[in-house]
Design a protein around this nucleic acid. Sequence first.
DNA 1: AAGCCTGCCAACCGCTCCCTG
DNA 2: ACAGGGAGCGGTTGGCAGGCT
Length: 464
Amino acid sequence: MARTVSNNDSTNDETGDDSNATTKEDGEVKGRVRKGPWTPAEDAILVEYVKKHGEGNWNSVHKNSGLFRCGKSCRLRWANHLRPNLKKGAFSPEEEQIIIDLHSKLGNKWARMAAQLPGRTDNEIKNFWNTRMKRRQRAGLPIYPPEVHAEATAYHLQHRYMEHHQPHSSASFALLLSSCYPKKLNDPSQSSNANPLQNQPDSANCYINQSQKHFKFSNENALPLSPLSPYGSSSSTLLNHSFGDHGFIAGSPYESFPLVSVSTPDISSNQTPTPASSYASGVDGLMGSSTMANNNNNDYYEVAPLSPPGNSGLLDALVMEAQGLSHNDKSKNEEDPTLAGKLSCKRKNMEYEEEAMMSAMKKNSGNSTTTENQRDDDNSSSQFSKGKKVMREDPMEEMNSMDDDLFSLLNQFPLEMPMPEWYRRGENQSLGLENQPNASAPDPADQEYAWTLGTCWNNMPSIC
DNA sequence: AAGCCTGCCAACCGCTCCCTG
DNA sequence: ACAGGGAGCGGTTGGCAGGCT
């Protein structure tokens, strides 16, 4: 990557580095910090410096090493290219899946995503995502597969619920989620889906902490994966089951939220639980959520996503999809009165159920699990303190603080939302798949096909 | 062959947060 | 309590390479 060195432009971009302007002749830069691509010689100097002095104190690099680079540039160069254990080359499919999952939940938090992918830098992930976004947008494809999107929605809904009903224990919910994963991970039927990263040497902050045989928040960033993730986790499936027939958040500020439950015949009483549902059965249902995948009794389609603040990319995308779906709702209900009637009827049922669930939720809200999880959460957050810098916030809390305007916007969604094409397709299939063990894992080609249907990402504004 | 387009990637820039004096 | 500096993060820019027309 030959890039011209800008010798004449020296905006004081760091913290007064230009005050260190030197008169030493370096051939290219005189009296300025150097910009542009790094040379091997510069790399060598920087590596040597870090070996001697360690990371940090980047501004002193310029003073002590003779490098005509600002501290910021040095830090970046080290972090993105020179530090050991950096993984170069294209992202593996597994890594891509992780990124998609993480982005659905974190938005453009590249550094946090990078923390989940050992050897990868935030810059790499950012570039990857932007390129991918561009490509998918151009192709008219949604940025997330529907399963990931639905789970992300559930994820954000859960946070919103926790914020409103258990303002001090939202992180506990994450622990509750995390506590559900071991069973999933140990499930033999899922063994082929083992996290491909889990055996990597530098996996302290990896997505799944295999060493503990436990999906836990190895740092503040660990998040549940989507049902399609190759790592065999599905908080949505889990939680949905935990709630039995109540695949919505009762009593939540989302009561008017378009959580559309589309029931398949209730066969729960004589149904052998799938492995996924077995996992859930061991957990006191605290939260209800949903995806369209892998449900035995009910399929719930969530269409109104919530987003953490500051996740500009995700936020925009989710709002766009919400708007698109809202628009589609109108037209599709007109086209398909049967569906509209079905959903309307179901909605009424849900309203009754919501009340019942609300009281159940309130009972649960003060249980001992919460207290214990809170303690665990404190531990996990302390594990992640990095260097002298204290992490600014619990990600769960960050997720919870949502812009009020968006919130009110989302609350004004129509009560009935359409099932997109991909979902209706899935519904049809689900009738025949209910007893199939891997109904939640469509073949990739199929999946890609599904992405192209029913979602409204095509309407996203250009990012260019 | 030339021009255009797109993907990829490194680096820059502005901003924010946290620490320290 | 406050200001300044260090560090990190996310957004953006711009050059190169390769494919396509």
